[in-house]
Nucleic acid binder design. Structure first.
Length: 556
DNA sequence: TAAGAGGAGTTAC
DNA sequence: GTAACTCCTCTTA
């Protein structure tokens, strides 16, 4: 969420009324599952970012100023794009005069098959510290989803801001304080929507950078809208967009929109400190609530009564309506509650189900993270390398309750792709949605880069290979359809049926993971067939090429 | 022709 | 010992 603030938009220009209003900016669909598969990179953003929140005027275009930071302190690059509102559809136009300017990969690489788990709207809870710094970061897409209908409101982001601190000083301070990001997200293939591009400029960002932001106009616009039709909507999004305290407090690097477009792999390094801090924040808040409610930090350890206490506390926290029959609706203990799908939460509590489910996911991750770090530190202290037991020995639990466990390796794969195989990289587009959610979910059990305080497990690459099993690897790929949807996807997730869409690529990825350059699909499929005898996988009843099915308990 | 199936030896841990 | 790799032959769609 903090990164969204890097998208600074001049408020004196805005698409006309007939122009599509929404550039939805989805940072993460859901932490554990349900990745929406956008039709292209930009459409992913278009799902959740409401331009109506931003300042506007009746001008024909919006120059959007996105600051792209390089690894070196200077020069920094400003990317200025414009909306050509004469177009029927919204178009983001770019050109790339420098390597530091990134763009999206081609659309045909960005179109995984339709998601098996449709994205569901997420109610907008009142922002709590956790939500402001973590949850909305992790569930940005969900929180924003409720604002769709407001595209015509043209509510000024700043005008109706509940945050009075947003002023020129604030913006300037952020621009100067924030260190640069690495020059990631360099890709050559333009977005499908950039076909008619005409006005992107990449310029060195010097000390006079604030000149790109029309602050006076912005403030005037703010005053103007304060006097006009301000709607009391978008509060959370506005808060998220405006609140820079977290970023400044921790001296975090901003990420430009192009970084998301360019790929998760390239921005992962930038997310990790934020993820770590966000998780710490989540844990602190969870700790406080646990102490208050006298419940375990581990949701799986909750009794039904403790479940009810937590549910009521969470409902109160987010100012959601208290359910009279909560005890009847949720008779499960914590372990059973943790297994409930978001759909089930929503079915039981249409108004607040999503929030409760999302909050529970955060708690689960926070606990998993703390548990892992504790275990890792204990092992480290005793000289034992942390073993990825959660990954290798408890597939049921890890796959169902902590689905992100499998995802870091995949992100590693993406990183490695970007380093070693441009072909694979371009074939594995990533969008921001998967980025945050994956990174967050991954964070719990998988170590990470040197920036991460968590010890890297042997589940990831260690020395010349990896201990990860093939079935785990496949689930890992399947868990990130936005990354790997073109290579492997679920056919029927509930039955564990999946299809390898690109056998060559899957084999290459597997070979990389296992440090087996000669790996091919013939060998990979041979390994899969070995799973038949082991009861790990099987062919589907109606055998189809490249279609396999996980057996229980290797699939939830 | 690519994928599926399976036997059998080898390698890495 | 186990999991996976590798090579192979044969079958199938």
């Amino acid at each position: 969420m903090e990164y969204e603030k890097i998208l600074y938009m001049s408020n004196n220009e805005m698409p006309p009324a007939n122009a599509p209003q929404q550039l939805q900016f989805k940072l993460g669909a859901a932490v554990t599952h349900q990745f929406l598969a956008p039709s292209d990179q930009y459409s992913a953003y278009a799902d959740n970012f409401d331009l109506s929140l931003l300042p506007y005027s009746q001008e024909a275009s919006i120059p959007t100023t996105v600051y792209q930071y390089n690894a070196s302190p200077a020069p920094q690059i400003k990317i200025e794009s414009a909306w050509d509102c004469l177009q029927e559809s919204q178009i983001i136009k770019q050109e790339q005069p420098t390597a530091a300017v990134s763009c999206a990969t081609s659309s045909n690489q960005l179109i995984p098959p339709p998601p098996a788990y449709p994205y569901s709207a997420y109610p907008s809870p009142q922002s709590s510290p956790l939500q402001s710094e973590f949850a909305s970061f992790a569930y940005g897409g969900k929180y924003n989803a409720g604002y769709d209908s407001l595209s015509s409101s043209r509510t000024s982001l700043y005008a109706s801001s509940p945050c009075p601190s947003l002023d020129a000083t604030c913006i300037k301070q952020e621009l100067h304080i924030l260190p640069p990001s690495p020059p990631e997200s360099n890709c050559e293939t333009p977005s499908p929507r950039s076909a008619t591009s005409e006005s992107i400029k990449a310029e060195p960002l010097d000390a006079d950078v604030e000149s790109f932001i029309d602050l006076n106009a912005l403030l005037q616009q703010q005053q103007h809208h304060q006097q006009s039709d301000i709607k009391p909507d978008h509060q959370l999004l506005r808060e998220c967009l405006e609140d820079t305290t977290f970023q400044r407090k921790h001296n975090l690097k901003p990420l430009a929109l192009e970084s998301f477009i360019g790929g998760l792999a390239e921005v992962r390094g930038d997310f990790e400190p934020v993820i770590s801090l966000a998780l710490e924040h989540a844990k602190r808040e969870a700790d406080a609530i646990c102490a208050q409610l006298h419940i375990s930090q581990d949701p799986n350890a909750w009794s039904p009564a403790q479940v009810h206490a937590w549910l009521r506390s969470t409902l109160a926290q987010f100012k959601l309506p208290q359910a009279v029959d909560l005890e009847l609706l949720f008779s499960e203990n914590g372990a059973a509650l943790a297994l409930l799908s978001e759909e089930e939460f929503v079915r039981r509590l249409p108004q607040s189900g999503s929030t409760l489910h999302a909050q529970l996911e955060i708690w689960k991750m926070a606990y998993a993270d703390s548990s892992y770090q504790t275990a890792g530190s204990q092992m480290e202290a005793s000289g034992i390398q942390a073993e990825p037991t959660a990954v290798t020995t408890a597939p049921q639990e890890t796959a169902e309750m902590w689905p992100g466990n499998y995802q870091l390796q995949n992100m590693d794969e993406c990183n490695e792709d970007s380093e070693e195989d441009e072909e694979l990289e371009t074939a594995a587009p990533v969008n921001a949605g998967s980025g945050i959610s994956q990174a967050l979910s991954v964070r719990s059990n998988s170590g990470g880069s040197s920036q991460m305080p968590v010890k890297r497990t042997s589940g990831s690459r260690a020395g010349g290979g990896s201990h990860i099993h093939l079935w785990q690897f496949l689930k890992e790929l399947l868990a990130a359809p936005q990354v790997n949807g073109t290579a492997i996807r679920w056919i029927d997730r509930s039955k564990g049926i999946f299809k390898i869409e690109d056998s060559v690529r899957v084999a290459k990825l597997w070979g990389r993971r296992k440090n087996r350059p000669a790996m091919n699909y013939d060998k990979l499929s041979r390994s899969i067939r070995q799973y038949y005898k082991k009861g790990i996988m099987k062919k589907t009843e109606r055998s189809q090429r490249l279609v396999y099915q996980f057996c229980q308990p290797y699939h939830q």
